[in-house]
Design a protein around this nucleic acid. Structure first.
Lengths: 218, 218
DNA sequence: CCAGTTCTTGAACTGTAGGTACAAAATGTG
DNA sequence: CACATTTTGTACCTACAGTTCAAGAACTGG
């Protein structure tokens, strides 16, 4: 939960201090837009159109600000993308983690979480899927910064699944003979596979079958 | 096996007849390059760089022909991409299908096939992963033609997994109580998930765990 | 109200994406 | 060899990606 919003890294922290001091001591014309909102909107655009598929014009249109403001505030398309990806991690990727931590029987919780993902993805505008999955497929080998961010998100999710399995083994719901680490990896793989499948699925049938078979396998 | 190279569709067939008649009756200068090889090379480029990430210049460089020849022969970037995707289906996507049809115990065959995928993906240049997976993530909602091709590839693979499960149930390797259709979907999901994970994996550890847990779950 | 600073707007700029047009060269046919 | 037809490389084109910049607007402290 608290890990969802990680402690600012040194650079961020310095920026923040600097920004605050400046806003008190010097101050120029204030921003006409909220940078946080802008990052959020940029995230939506990258999510729907991909990195290469997003143009500065798309961003300008979505954010409702001028190109100058955009580059003044964020520096470059890639820098904005990086911020958007971090925002995704902090606002979206944690949703699954939180669902897995709710109380109740382990298998039911797992099923509910997977069904939630499937419904979310099938209902989402443009069937955008999961930004982390999309970035993994699009940029993995050409953008090490993005790849590392996605890797960390996957690591965290894998870990949450492992913890869930271990809990199930303690409560007796899941056979203690099975390797919780391996099952954690498997569930991560299954969940991300689901989100990929959701991008081209015609209906929910296949996704439902995957979820059924997964829960059945535990 | 024979399905690997499908019978020419009407349009292809007509083109072929026309081309042959022309080559007998009129005939001009023959192509200096082999279109099949060119499509193969284009496939490699799209595979490594994605659709949006591939420029006409990239294609010209990789194919070693002029832009004029490129557009004369293939019409547009997108048309060439479509041919490249079909080529992928016929030359690459079938490899997994063939592996699943080999003789031997079902579980061992499944393990071998998944391990083969993982090794292939980890060793591949630029860790390009699976073109179908990449296209699903990049283009699903913006290119219906490509989406349909990927859908069909996924359908075929899912079917091969289902057949494998049914065979395992006949030989007693797999419990007859389990739904082979659902397990087919699950294995498709797992395999495509693996190929996605391979794009950002740091080592083979996670992939090995996924494979172990998958085979264990049957 | 002026200095100093930061933000905004919009034009401008460079390079390239994606594709077309064309003339010259190459080739099989008779 | 002339002919019809095709390929090919080059030049060219329009649009836009991605970014920069100049001019001015808004704010604060003095």
């Amino acid at each position: 939960m608290t890990a969802a919003v990680p402690f600012p890294r040194p650079a961020d922290f310095f920026d923040l201090r600097l920004k605050n001091r400046v806003s008190v001591l010097i101050m120029g014309r204030p921003k006409q837009f909220d940078p946080d909102t802008a990052v959020e909107q940029a995230m939506e655009v990258f999510w729907r159109k991909g990195y290469a598929g997003t143009t500065p014009q798309d961003l300008v249109d979505a954010l409702g600000i001028g190109k100058g403001s955009l580059y003044n505030a964020f520096g470059s398309k890639h820098a904005l993308f990086e911020q958007a990806l971090r925002r995704y991690r902090d606002s979206q990727a944690v949703i699954l983690l939180e669902m897995l931590e709710e109380p109740g029987p382990v298998k039911a919780r797992l099923r509910k979480a997977l069904e939630f993902l499937a419904e979310l993805d099938l209902a989402a505008p443009d069937r955008r899927g999961c930004l982390a999955v999309n970035v993994a497929a699009e940029l993995a080998r050409t953008d090490e910064t993005a790849a590392e961010l996605v890797r960390r998100m996957f690591d965290r999710t894998e870990d949450a699944f492992r913890a869930l399995i271990e809990e199930g083994q303690r409560t007796g719901e899941i056979s203690p003979g099975r390797d919780p680490v391996a099952l954690g990896s498997l569930l991560l793989n299954t969940a991300m596979g689901l989100r990929l499948m959701a991008r081209i699925a015609e209906g929910s049938d296949r996704l439902v079958r995957v979820i059924d078979a997964t829960v059945d396998s535990l």
